[in-house]
């Protein structure tokens, strides 16, 4: 992945603060949940460096709510693999927002547009975002680098609430990747 040439904004395009990659994964049959099998299921969809390149990829993707089965989109900064073990993530954590079925596509779009537009105002802290399509709910997660930095995680939570415009009783939980590794479950 790191050997790929980095994308560059084309003439007249609007550059993003960071380059990004979109990944897709679908849970394989069987019950193995090792990090190796997770890694194997990650498929790189594309990379982009500008607003226009983002739309060029995103517009061709199936909307999250129209996917079936147990699958995830991951949108991460270029160079960060969407895995707990990546060096950018291993001291980090994520905000988790559980959504009723039907809200996933709209909330995912609002989340990633805020991330690409640098609306979180937490410097280099944001690593990436995930939407997980599950049988009874859709789950958004926003990953950051430093789980122990409470000022940053609180600011991310407040911005998330604002940009997702969710009902006030929506439950948000923060989980460190270290805890996810220990209990070997993501949510």
């Amino acid at each position: 992945f790191k050997l790929r040439p980095s994308p560059r904004p084309g003439p007249g395009e609007h550059p993003l603060q960071f380059n990004y990659a979109i990944w897709f994964s679908r849970k394989s049959q069987g019950k193995t949940s090792s990090s190796a099998s997770y890694d194997q299921n990650l498929k790189l969809v594309g990379t982009f460096a500008s607003v226009e390149q983002f739309w060029g990829i995103y517009s061709h993707l199936v909307r999250p709510s129209d996917l079936s089965g147990h699958c995830d989109y991951h949108l991460f900064k270029e160079g960060i693999r969407p895995m707990w073990e990546d060096s950018a993530n291993n001291k980090g954590g994520k905000w988790i927002v559980r959504l009723k079925k039907g809200l996933g596509s709209r909330c995912w779009e609002n989340l990633i547009l805020a991330m690409l537009g640098e609306q979180f105002m937490v410097g280099e802290e944001i690593c990436g975002a995930v939407i997980s399509i599950r049988y009874q709910e859709d789950i958004l997660a926003l990953w950051n680098r430093t789980a122990c930095d409470q000022v940053t995680t609180s600011r991310i939570r407040d911005t998330l609430k604002r940009i997702l415009n969710l009902p006030p009783n929506t439950i948000m939980e923060y989980k460190t990747h270290n805890d996810s590794i220990k209990d070997n479950s993501s949510f």
């Binding site: 395009e13 993003l16 690409l116």
Partner: peptide
């Protein structure tokens, strides 16, 4: 360097730009 911020509405406008393929 300078930070590149974009508001949601601006990003949505770019979706319809002729540069977006």
């Amino acid at each position: 360097g300078t930070k590149i911020f974009y508001e949601r509405n601006f990003l949505m406008q770019c979706r319809n730009s002729p540069l977006t393929r």
